[in-house]
């Protein structure tokens, strides 16, 4: 009995020091979506239906952080595949707690069009990832609680349960397995409002790029429709000195070759 109390006493301060769900998710967001000052990768995306038929997307992605983690970000995408959308470019300015700004260049019409971003939960380029899955959901929209600790493979993880504060979200809650060491999300389960698991995110490969642990292969599977999307990052790189002036309409029409090799 005495031993138990001693043990409990020894544990207590640790409990106090331990991270809250909020903090875990914040660190996770920083590691997963805000690593480096800027980032570049060639993204291969396979959209695979239940029948095994694939749609292919290939694009160059550039990202630049304007400030701290959780702050404003700018994205630039140039499409290689499918072949008939080659030269299409897509630009997003992401603001915390505000709708994104999005622009698209349509080569067939030689036209830049502003696209409304009324729904962050809509599909990203037809994949099972939503815009939110790609660029992050506002942490303040959910309440986060560490449910338990678990392992994904050999990695120790926090399992964080995030529940939307507003009732009108299109999902009930999600569970995120956050790596205790590098704070990358290794697995995420999204539950619909009936409480049934309907989407499963897995980080299939994590690589070290310039000292930043980076998820280089990931899958999002819709468990109800059987549709899934596999994403691979090749040629990932950080801190390249991508200039803010790149993120303009001019470059949407004339993407700089230097960045989209």
């Amino acid at each position: 009995m005495r031993h138990w109390i001693a043990l409990l006493a020894a544990l207590l301060p640790l409990q106090v020091l331990a991270l809250s769900g909020e903090e875990v998710m914040k660190k996770s967001q920083a590691a997963f979506l805000y690593a480096g000052k800027d980032f570049k990768a060639r993204v291969l995306m396979k959209l695979i239906n239940k029948d095994g038929q694939e749609r292919l997307r290939e694009l160059a992605m550039l990202r630049r952080n304007s400030g701290e983690a959780g702050g404003e970000q700018k994205f630039f995408m140039y499409f290689f595949q499918p072949a008939d959308v080659k030269d299409m470019t897509f630009m997003t300015f992401k603001y915390p707690a505000k709708d994104d700004d999005r622009w698209l260049f349509v080569p067939a019409l030689n036209m830049v069009k502003r696209i409304a971003a009324q729904d962050k939960r809509s599909s990203f380029v037809g994949s099972d990832f939503t815009y939110e899955d790609v660029s992050g959901r506002d942490l303040g929209d959910d309440s986060h609680v560490i449910e338990r600790e678990d392992k994904v493979g050999a990695r120790d993880c926090y399992v964080v349960k995030s529940t939307p504060k507003a009732g009108d979200a299109d999902f009930g809650h999600k569970l995120t397995w956050v790596d205790k060491a590098n704070f990358l999300p290794l697995k995420e389960e999204q539950y619909d409002r009936r409480g049934a698991r309907y989407k499963l995110f897995t980080a299939d490969e994590v690589a070290d790029v310039k000292g930043f642990p980076t998820v280089t292969r990931r899958t999002m599977k819709n468990l109800q429709s059987g549709h899934r999307s596999e994403v691979t990052y090749v040629k990932s790189d950080y801190d390249l000195g991508i200039d803010d002036s790149l993120f303009t309409e001019r470059f949407l029409r004339q993407p700089p070759r230097k960045w989209i090799d």
Binding site: D84, M88, F90, V106, A108, S123, F124, V125, G126, H227
Partner: peptide, 15 residues
């Protein structure tokens, strides 16, 4: 044009 339109559509529509 058709390919790009449909791609544009698929960028935000449900799969």
């Amino acid at each position: 044009a058709i390919g790009q339109y449909l791609f544009l559509f698929s960028m935000s529509a449900k799969p």
